[in-house]
Amino acid sequence: MWRSVASNALTFLVVLVFLFGGVLIWAQNEYSAEGPLDAPICLQVNRGSNFTRVSEDLEGQGAISSGTIFRLGADYADKTSDLKAGSYLVPERASMSEITEIVTRGGASTCGTEVVYRIGVTRAEVQVRELDPSVGRYEEVLEFDPGAEEIPAAYEDFKSAVGTRFRIALAEGVTSWQVVEELKQVDVLEGEVAELPAEGSLAPDSYEVVVGDDRAGLIERMQNAQEVILAEAWANRAEGLPYATPEEALTMASIVEKETGGAEERPLVASVFVNRLERGMRLQTDPTVIYGITQGEGPLGRGLRQSELRRETPYNTYVIAGLPPTPIANPGRASIEAALNPAESDYIYFVAKTLDPADGHNFAETLDAHNRNVAAYRRLEAEQANQ
């Protein structure tokens, strides 16, 4: 009898082991299998959260088939203590295993809110954007002037949200004074900039920052980036250019930057100024005169006066020969490369095609041809004035 009971018990135990093994294999397959999501979602993991809350959120959004299997799988993979707060893009059909990896690997949030502090040539603005998971693109939800007396109340909510990312976007052609002044308005940064950076030394680009970053440290990042760009362009420069040093090339690049916003035109504009230098002609460019007046402290806000065009200053290229003593703005990579690899041309003049700067310029090899282009531009000005 006891032998029969023992035999039955053993059989029952074997069946249980097989059943458990089958369930385990099924659960492992479920954990690694393609998930039920039909479209990407943005999953927010709050500080102090745990896998139970995350699994409930994922189940509620239809991203996983079983919260229990998700939690057990994460525990089996020894990931439960690695959960990171943030906002994460969960792609469609993501498996539970892939989602576990997404929320535990750390690093920057991959969706949610992004606050961009844009420093432009004529204005600065703060943009708050949120990623639309369905299209994988950021959509603007708030925009305002950082210097305004009243900052939108919603900004504080966005700024303090878990996973919010912050970027400083520096436009080509801004001056160092503008950069320092606008960074003072960026309230997620700390510290002072003790000394105004040399003009031209800051690389226009987008810089990711975190709350509490030091302003002086960010300036140093911008300077290091510009040094790398300039050194690389100088090493790959064309032969026979009229620059004795990389700094002179940087000055030329800043002039090119201020004369055109069209990327395709920069090598041609650079060729005009290089041709002028090589022929001993004056550069005769308004942006340098303007910089001599403003010292880079914001736009002039009016047209140049004849007296200003005749006045001798280190930056009045209608009067002085050669380059001004320093750059007149912070040029971007494209303008630096154009200054060091200008187009081959015989052009020595150019003037805007239309009243819209986006339409580019007419170039000329002779003064007669240039005068015709200028006359055409003046007619457009007169037509607009009479409308």
Rank of each mutant, 00 (worst) to 15 (best):
Met1Gly: 10
Arg3Pro: 14
Val5Thr: 14
Asn8Trp: 15
Asn8Pro: 04
Leu16Ile: 13
Gly21Arg: 04
Trp26His: 11
Ala33Trp: 08
Glu34Lys: 07
Glu34Ala: 09
Pro36Glu: 08
Ala39Arg: 11
Pro40Ala: 14
Pro40Leu: 09
Arg47Glu: 14
Phe51Asp: 04
Arg53Glu: 07
Glu59Pro: 00
Glu59Gln: 02
Gln61Gly: 02
Gly62Tyr: 11
Gly62Val: 02
Ala63Pro: 06
Ser66Ala: 02
Thr68Ala: 12
Phe70Gln: 06
Phe70Glu: 07
Gly73Met: 04
Ala74Gln: 07
Asp75Ser: 15
Asp75Lys: 14
Ser81His: 13
Ala85Asp: 09
Tyr88Ser: 07
Leu89Pro: 12
Ala94Trp: 10
Ser95Phe: 09
Thr100Phe: 08
Gly107His: 06
Ser109Gln: 05
Thr110Arg: 04
Thr110His: 10
Gly112Leu: 05
Ile119Gly: 05
Val121Trp: 05
Val128Ala: 09
Arg129Ser: 15
Leu131Gly: 15
Pro133His: 08
Gly136Glu: 10
Gly136Gln: 05
Glu139Asn: 13
Leu142Trp: 02
Glu143Arg: 15
Phe144Cys: 10
Gly147Cys: 01
Pro152Met: 04
Lys159Gly: 04
Lys159Cys: 07
Ser160Ile: 08
Val162Lys: 00
Arg165Thr: 10
Ile168Asp: 09
Ala171Leu: 05
Glu172His: 11
Val174Phe: 00
Val179Pro: 15
Val180Gly: 01
Glu181Gln: 13
Leu183Ala: 05
Gln185Asp: 08
Val186His: 08
Glu190Gln: 13
Gly191Ala: 12
Val193Pro: 04
Gly200Tyr: 05
Leu202Asn: 01
Ala203Met: 13
Tyr207Gly: 00
Val210Lys: 02
Leu218Tyr: 05
Ile219Asn: 09
Glu220Val: 10
Glu220Gly: 08
Arg221Phe: 06
Gln226Phe: 05
Glu227Cys: 00
Trp234Thr: 03
Glu239Met: 01
Pro242Ile: 04
Pro242Asn: 04
Pro242Gly: 03
Tyr243Arg: 00
Glu247Cys: 13
Leu250Tyr: 06
Leu250Asn: 10
Met252Ser: 09
Val256Tyr: 12
Thr260Ser: 06
Gly262Leu: 15
Pro267Trp: 13
Pro267Thr: 08
Phe273Pro: 02
Gly280Ala: 01
Val289His: 07
Tyr291Gln: 01
Gly292Lys: 14
Ile293Phe: 10
Ile293Gly: 07
Gln295Lys: 15
Gln295Tyr: 13
Leu304Asn: 10
Arg305Ile: 01
Gln306Asn: 14
Leu309Asn: 02
Glu312Ser: 12
Thr313Pro: 06
Asn316Thr: 06
Ile320Leu: 14
Ala321Ile: 06
Gly322Cys: 07
Pro325Asp: 12
Pro325Phe: 03
Gly332Tyr: 00
Ile336His: 02
Ile348Gly: 06
Ala358Gln: 12
Ala358Val: 11
Ala358Pro: 02
Gly360Ser: 08
Asp368Ser: 08
Ala376Leu: 02
Ala376Met: 00
Tyr377Arg: 04
Arg378Leu: 10
Ala382Arg: 15
Glu383Trp: 03
Gln384Ala: 14
Ala385Pro: 11
Gln387Ile: 14
